[in-house]
Computed example of a mutant assay.
Amino acid sequence: MGSILTTLVLLALACAAAFGAQAASMPLPFMIGPLIASGIVATTVSDRLPDGYRFPPMLRLVFISVIGLMIGAQVTPELFGQASRFAVSFTALTLFVIVAHAYGYSVLRFIGGYDRPTAFYGAAPGGLFESIALGEEAGADPARLTLQQFLRIIAVVTLLPIGLSLWVGHPVGSSAGVTLGRGDVPWSAFPLIACAGAAGLGLGHVLRLPAKQLTGPLSVAALLSLTGIYHVDVPQWLINVAQIVVGTALGMRFAGLSGGLVLRGVGLTVLCVGGMMGLAIVFALALMQVLEQPFDVLLISFAPGGVTEMSLVALSLSANPAFVTLHHIFRILITVVGLGVSSKLVRRRL
């Protein structure tokens, strides 16, 4: 009973933090607000929680599947209809992922002193949930891995929209009220949403997909959309709830990290993200003439941030959101495939 009450209190605190972050016009407020609040609880008062308390893993799994459905629903026939035109940019993006990952690994391994699994998965320039799930399976330190991956996301989705907002003269991204969700989804659609999520979890388990709790539902939603059978429209309030739950669960993984380790993680993130963004700028400048796309569109497409926020930034700027979304989905797929292959090779070697 104590664990249930603790979970309810944590979620109440997370909700307050989410709406506070929204009022402060923070990017991804329903994810970052709860993450910060629960992270503070985990690092400062974890000794006051019930003995052996863990945030319910099943609750986290269910709502991660909701996020997977939302991302997969963005994979429309119109989006993939443009894919054949982007051979050059996809090749460049593949090279970007390889170089950015190698650079990040070097920073975390040789400057940060992290062990190899934590440095490798913590440096992945995409696939937040996949990196965390695969890294835990490979023996990475879950607290430091979660810290580095979320600091990467926070840095990019905070600093890039702020920089672009100053450049264009108005807010962009989720802080501008742009959303990928819908507010007019009827209640009759919820059984179909639940079935798609359950089918995705089952598919991920049967096919042993990497980070199956996310990639399974993502694959089902994308398949339904591409075939025209059904388009999974996830209401915005459900996306918000999912972000609150997942943000709270991940923040609680910071238990055991001291303030010094968090500050050290921030410093390493500055080095990692600074180098990755510098690399993204180089790629964007090099491809402007070849792809006939504006610099800001290419920069958003190569930035190692979350697909949701980067797509929202593109929508805010009317900056070819289909182009941006397709490139971020491709970046995540390349990263996840690379991590999955690496995990299998490591297991075989061990």
Score class of each variant (00 low, 15 high):
178 V>M: 13
246 V>L: 13
252 M>V: 05
264 R>W: 08
200 G>R: 08
255 A>C: 07
217 P>G: 02
214 L>E: 01
230 Y>C: 04
175 S>F: 03
257 L>P: 14
199 A>N: 02
187 W>S: 05
177 G>A: 12
221 A>G: 00
223 L>Q: 04
162 I>R: 10
244 I>L: 12
182 R>E: 02
262 V>T: 01
192 L>E: 12
227 T>E: 11
222 A>C: 01
200 G>H: 11
183 G>A: 00
189 A>T: 13
243 Q>M: 15
186 P>I: 01
253 R>T: 09
258 S>L: 05
194 A>K: 11
168 V>F: 14
177 G>Y: 14
184 D>P: 11
234 V>N: 02
233 D>S: 05
249 A>S: 15
206 V>A: 03
271 L>I: 01
172 V>H: 08
272 C>H: 15
223 L>I: 07
233 D>Y: 05
212 K>V: 00
257 L>C: 04
171 P>K: 06
217 P>E: 01
241 V>W: 15
241 V>H: 05
257 L>Q: 08
162 I>W: 14
245 V>Y: 10
168 V>I: 14
268 L>S: 00
188 S>E: 07
179 T>R: 14
249 A>N: 10
219 S>E: 02
184 D>V: 03
197 G>Q: 09
254 F>H: 11
251 G>C: 07
259 G>S: 02
265 G>Y: 03
268 L>W: 00
229 I>A: 15
273 V>L: 13
185 V>R: 03
176 A>H: 07
203 L>A: 01
199 A>V: 03
235 P>L: 04
174 S>H: 05
267 G>L: 09
267 G>K: 10
224 L>P: 13
269 T>G: 12
251 G>T: 08
209 L>W: 13
274 G>A: 00
269 T>I: 07
165 S>C: 05
208 R>E: 01
222 A>V: 01
206 V>E: 00
200 G>M: 02
233 D>W: 02
260 G>I: 06
218 L>N: 03
225 S>R: 11
259 G>D: 05
240 N>V: 09
232 V>G: 04
237 W>L: 03
254 F>D: 08
172 V>M: 06
229 I>F: 15
166 L>T: 02
182 R>K: 06
